[in-house]
Every structure is written in C-alpha cells, then in structure tokens.
Design a protein around this nucleic acid. Structure first.
Length: 416
RNA sequence: GUCUGGGUAGUCUAGUGGUUAGGAUAGCGGGUUGUGGUCCCGUUGACCCGAGUUCGAAUCUCGGCCCGGACCCCA
C-alpha cells in the first residue's frame, strides 16, 4: 500500500498547523479591532460564476468537474470572486462592508516552489468607500498584524494612476501598459538596467525607456510632481500618506516602481516585504471596477491579501513548540492516574491547556515526551505528594522544582 | 508552455548487474524500583509503479506517477 496525496496537495502536521493557526488568529484579532468581520463562502461554486468575467488563464487553471446532478461546478481559485457574488446576492449589506476571509483556494496549475494546487488565502477588503482613509486603514491594520507576528516589515506604496501618467508622459501606447508594468515591477530583482532591457524586449521604444527609467529613479514625490505635473495619483498618494500619519504608521515607503501584476488595480497599490530577507509577504490595492464587472453592482473596493505561505516560512523556523499544552500532569505510578486526570480536568475547567499520559509510561518516559513536545511545565503526582497534599511543579526549562498546594497551582497556571 | 535534474524506511543518505540492501536521525522499548533535553543497548521500518532486457535488476531500457531547478506566465 502506497497512497500519495493528490499532486500539488499537502498534509499539514500539527507542528505546522500551530504556526498557521497563530497567523490566522493574530490576523483575526487585529482585524476585528478595526471592525473587519469574518466571512466564509463555499469551496465549490458553479463554474459559470467562477469563469464569468475571467480570462482564459483562469479557466485553464480551474479545478472543474460535474456533480452527480450533472451541474458544472468548480473549486474557487481565489476569495475575491466568491465575495463579489456575496455582494451581488445580498443587496441589503450595509456599507462599508468590511470583511476578512481566510480559507483554501485551488488552482490546477504548474507546481513551483511555494506554489501548490491547494493553498491558503487570507484576504482583507473594504467595500463601498472611495476615501483614502479606507486604504490607509487597511495598511495600518495589516502592518499591525505583521508586527504582532514579530516580522520586520516595510510597506511599499504606490498608485496606479501615477503609473498611468508615467506611461502617458513616456508616450507608451495603452496596449503596452500591462507589459511595461510587469517590466517596471521587476526593478527590485533586476535593477534599473534590467528594467530597461525588459522594456526594450517587450517592444517599447528607446525614447520611452529613457523617460521611464528617469521617473522610476526618482525617490521624492516633489520631483515627480515637477515632471508629471499635479496628477490625481499624486494627490491620492499624498492623501493616503497624510492618513497614514494619523494612523501613526511609519514603516512604509513610496516606491513608484511598484506596479503589481494584476491589471484590475485602479488606485493605490501596496506590497509588504520583509526587511531582512527580500521576500514579499503580501500585497493589495484598490480595485474600484472589479466588483461591478463581477456582480453588476458599482462598489468601490480596496483590499489586501496576506501571503500565508511566505509568512509561514518565516515563522516556522522561530517556533519549535509541537503542542499548545502548557502543563503536563505526570503520574509516578499507574495507581495515581485517577488523581492525575482529576487535577488535569480541574485545571482545564479553569481554562488551562493540560495533558496527561495515555501510554502507561514511566515517569522518565513521560518527561521525555514532555521535553520532545516542548511543553514548559510538569506537575508530578506520587505518594509523597499525596501524603503532603501538595504538588511538585517542575519547570522544564530550568529544571527547578518546588512543591505547592492546589490553590497556588491554579494561580500559577491561570491567565498569564 | 519550453528546457532540465531527480525518486532507497517519517527524514537524510550508502550502494551503478549477484549485498541477509548498510548507516544516521526520528519512532517504540529497555539501561530495575520517582525525574527529560547527554550516553549505551534492543526493535519497527525502504529500493515510486508497470513493462522490457538478463540465469539474475535498487542498479540497464521504455512508459507512467510524483518531486525539484531555470525561463515564460501568473500571484
């Protein structure tokens, strides 16, 4: 017998799931402080819904099949399309509609490093508001999530309208914009010269190239203003940064080379990357036209998608705990098992994470297990403890032990 | 989509035509009777699948499945 997981799909063992859970819970807690509420939608949607307004590429990567009633269905490939369906189906929703949603999405595509056919997405979006406060709020909230996770993040900020003006200024025909954006987006990877080459390779004239290179080389908004004049994108960006100041957000940087691949962005765009290692850990932006295309309702939208996989990769080296158990209640001999279970259950009732031995192991082996699982404390129960009516509490990190009464145990391992 | 490398226990790896397929690490048990993360001993456990070549295949050939790298594309 040799069963495999389906191509491109993975198992997540407890050790990994604890890290993932931490990411989700941290994000959830922070976002709810800002008034974002959870949303969930089915994994399966009608193929019609999923492919309604999407290009050929998406259709190719769709996990699609017929259900037993012959209906054509498919697994969602992102969380944006299902959410627009929700918006279309629920006209009563009060605006702004602020939701976060995390879950699995599926794409039947090539498998690459960090890219699988089943993956987690975590999206945060605000619907219904045109104001730059909304965008700033999302940036602030998201940066708080990263901070809580202990990541050193810088948020790069730009505006698609600035990019559009840059294209006009450089005299690049609209047909080639998308190509140009992709080239510019590679600045980080390939440098100014690399971008120039990319632009030429994509059929953009030398003249235009020079202008573009000059523009993405500028680092101050004022210089850009002088070249482009007072464009709407710059105005929006100034508004956004003004609000960011009010949110007391400092770890962002304006980067006019930031384009992001998706062509549905219409205003501000963001990308979060780790300062130490140059890794993108999430991105987003404003997409005011997409919901109308998908749902028929004219709803402005701005959002952000946390890159669960890269965040996970960054965090997994840090955490070694294989269990969320705080205390293990050990039994010296099987005859004390009932006492052990009794105490554990009282502690659980008080909200503590407690484990006991289920394998009939010796004290030595129990401690071995505790050590392997990274459980920080052990309470030992044996003859001595019963006689003295006290418990032995062992700190696994220091190896120090002391005897305490029940009340004290409850205090020790209570909240905090 | 193009090019390319690879699949030996859960993980890493030795073995290139005849081996009881070796080791490391993890798992489980033990090193007596109440103390882990060190050490020692024991034990479970593998040649991706199928066909072919051969007296004989982990090893050679072909196909499939799976995994990885580069570019393209996409996030």
């Amino acid at each position: 017998m040799n069963y495999q997981t389906v191509k491109g799909m993975r198992d997540f063992l407890p050790e990994e799931m604890l890290v993932r859970k931490k990411i989700f819970e941290t994000a959830q807690t922070v976002l709810e402080k800002y008034g974002f509420a959870p949303l969930d939608t089915p994994a399966l949607e009608y193929e019609e819904t999923l492919t309604a307004k999407s290009g050929e590429d998406v259709k190719k990567e769709l996990f699609a099949f017929k259900d037993k009633g012959g209906r054509k269905v498919g697994l969602r490939f992102d969380l944006t399309v299902p959410t627009s369906r929700v918006l279309a189906n629920n006209p009563h929703l009060v605006m702004p509609f602020k939701r976060y949603q995390y879950g699995k999405a599926w794409r039947y595509g090539e498998i690459k490093k960090g890219r699988y056919r089943e993956f987690y997405q975590f999206d945060i979006d605000s619907f219904g508001s045109n104001s730059m406060v909304t965008d700033a709020e999302i940036v602030a909230a998201v940066l708080e999530v990263y901070k809580k996770l202990g990541l050193n993040i810088i948020m790069r900020v730009n505006n698609r309208k600035i990019l559009a003006d840059m294209m006009d200024y450089a005299g690049i025909p609209k047909k080639l914009w998308q190509e140009a954006f992709r080239a510019i987006d590679k600045l980080d990877k390939v440098g100014l010269k690399g971008v120039e080459k990319e632009l030429v390779d994509r059929g953009i004239s030398k003249e235009s190239c020079k202008k573009i290179i000059r523009l993405i080389g500028t680092d101050s908004l004022n210089k850009l203003k002088k070249i482009l004049g007072g464009c709407e994108g710059i105005k929006e960006l100034e508004e956004l940064t003004g609000y960011l100041k009010s949110f007391n957000v400092k770890n962002y940087v304006i980067d006019v080379s930031l384009a992001r691949g998706l062509d549905y962005y219409t205003g501000p765009v963001f990308e979060a990357s780790c300062k130490d290692i140059k890794v993108s850990v999430g991105g987003g932006g404003r997409y005011d036209n997409l919901i109308k295309i998908l749902s028929g309702r004219d709803v402005p939208a701005t959002g952000f998608s946390l890159g669960i996989e890269p965040i996970f990769e960054l965090l997994k080296s840090k955490s070694k705990q294989a269990s969320s158990t705080k205390v293990f209640v050990a039994s010296v001999k099987p005859e004390f098992d009932k006492k052990v279970v009794g105490l554990a259950q009282k502690m659980r009732k008080a909200g503590m994470n407690v484990e006991t031995d289920l394998m009939g192991r010796s004290l030595k082996k129990q401690l071995d297990y505790v050590s392997k699982k990274g459980i920080p404390f052990v309470i030992i129960i044996g003859e001595k403890e019963l006689k003295e009516k006290k418990f032995t509490v062992r700190d696994m990190k220091t190896g120090k032990q002391r005897k305490t009464g029940f009340e004290e145990v409850m205090k020790l391992f209570g909240k905090g």
